[in-house]
């Protein structure tokens, strides 16, 4: 299959940096120049620079830029408060809101020709999922102390070892399904788009998929953050 044209990779190539043509680069520099890494940095830079530019100085009567961010942040905060309560929402807000903004932006960026979604690589989604997974267990231990292990033991003492194995398996399933879903959806979107561009790009064949892509990007970002929030809420909750 023909490679999609990625403009950052082209620029890096021009600068003489090694852009790997295999899925995994052979040394550190090549790995740093892989498309999903460079586009992650692009998204990060975007998320740092654009809010700075659009918000400027915070004012009492917000302009259009500040309004947008206030609605965005306010909506997210309300959403977290519903699921986590006031304190939990305040504690987890920086992490979860960052996940949401990062995922939605990196999903959407792949719809523009010349860009790719960093989330269409399993490394990125798995890294984010591991962060969520570790966080929710750490939170569980912080809120319940050592008694958190009771979450894994089920209600009947005699069944406890059996339930423990089941819980461990379903915990790892969580790790895998959360990362694989985001990766799978976005990778499918990217691949479909590049195939359609290659086959019949001149006849607007990718147009319906582009529309669907917007929907998928939004839904996957919401679902990822929502499940992360639900896991944290579950860990902070009392043992059933």
């Amino acid at each position: 299959m023909e490679h999609p044209i990625l403009f950052i990779s082209l620029i890096l190539d021009q600068m003489g940096l090694p852009v790997p043509h295999t899925p995994v680069g052979s040394n550190m520099l090549e790995r740093l120049c892989e498309p999903y890494m460079t586009y992650t940095w692009l998204v990060m830079a975007f998320l740092i620079i654009v809010p700075k530019l659009t918000m400027g100085k915070l004012e009492v009567i917000p302009g259009s830029g500040q309004n947008f961010w206030e609605v965005m942040i306010g909506g997210l905060m309300n959403f977290f408060k519903e699921n986590l309560g006031e304190d939990g929402a305040k504690m987890l807000f920086p992490m979860m809101a960052t996940f949401f903004l990062y995922i939605i932006l990196s999903n959407m960026i792949g719809l523009i020709p010349g860009f790719m979604s960093p989330t269409s690589n399993l490394n990125i989604t798995l890294a984010m999922t591991i962060m969520v997974w570790v966080t929710h267990h750490v939170l569980g231990f912080r809120y319940h102390g050592i008694k958190y292990y009771k979450h894994f033991m089920g209600p009947i003492p005699i069944m406890a070892p059996f339930m423990f194995v089941l819980e461990v398996i379903s915990n790892f399933a969580r790790l895998l399904s959360l990362s694989m879903r985001l990766f799978g959806n976005i990778f499918a979107k990217e691949t479909l788009l590049s195939v359609l561009f290659m086959l019949a790009g001149a006849y607007f064949a990718p147009l319906p998929i582009l529309c669907l892509g917007v929907l998928v990007s939004l839904i996957q970002a919401v679902v990822f953050v929502l499940l992360a929030v639900l896991y944290c809420a579950q860990a902070m909750d009392h043992a059933h």
Partner: peptide, 20 residues
Amino acid sequence: FRQLAVYSHVGMSFVFSIVI
């Protein structure tokens, strides 16, 4: 959206449990 997240999770977590 909440229900979408929860229900779309059902099938995948079932399959991955078995695979793991």
